[in-house]
Amino acid sequence: MTAPARALTGVLREFGALFSMALDVVVGVFRRPVRVREVVQQFWFIASVSILPAALVSIPFGAVITLQLGSLTAQIGADSFNGAASVLAVIQQASPIVTTLVVAGAGGSAICADLGSRTIREEIDAMRVLGVSPVHRLVVPRVVAAMAVAALLNGMVSVVGVCGGYVFNVVVQDGTPGAFLSSFSALAQLPDLWVGELKALVFGFLAGLVAAYRGLNPRGGPKGVGDVVNQSVVITFLLLFFVNFVISVVYLRIVPAKGA
């Protein structure tokens, strides 16, 4: 086999293993015993490291969108739709992505480092030998926790992002508060909120899954753990934007935009 062919099969094998673990996790979610304690602990951990960064990132994110749109809408005389555009962009796109970047960056990297160091200390092997599946015992609770945190955080980030946009629009750009608020439902509709939440759930699943998968397969000692943490964040980001693209396209096909 030539070198490129070997590299290709290597990549495919990695993705295959990732997918098979994804299936294991999905099956594991419904298998007893349910690890409530572990889920709660992980949920608490991921939430505690993600809430503040997510809020801090979402304020400027919402603000930038409003500022950009504000100058654009002012030029074409559509200032009154400022709020509508801001809500649409934040809820549908910005919020799930910001949420997951933070969940993957703060929570996922910690999960990956934790599982990675456990693997090189042979703790994972010991667990397998004791007849306990590490996927069921460790990975499933982490993935469930990451999904829950992402879904809930998504709501908070949406609110904070829209508020940030509101403040900047009203204070910096002299927008009309009433127009900003009343145009909320001009373009946005309820399914936008649902798809935002769905995205957050899927992204949370991906973040937890990739972190756990990379963490369970480090190569060669402590240095390997550092490498897989790095890789897990990069892979999650790549997957994230790709999956976001797919979901957005499918969504826009299925649910027509308001007024269209």
Partner: peptide, 16 residues
């Protein structure tokens, strides 16, 4: 089958 086994790892492999 692994439940039949007791394994002592090199460093004990305790859960930290």
């Amino acid at each position: 089958i692994r439940k039949l086994f007791g394994v002592l790892f090199q460093d004990g492999a305790l859960f930290g």
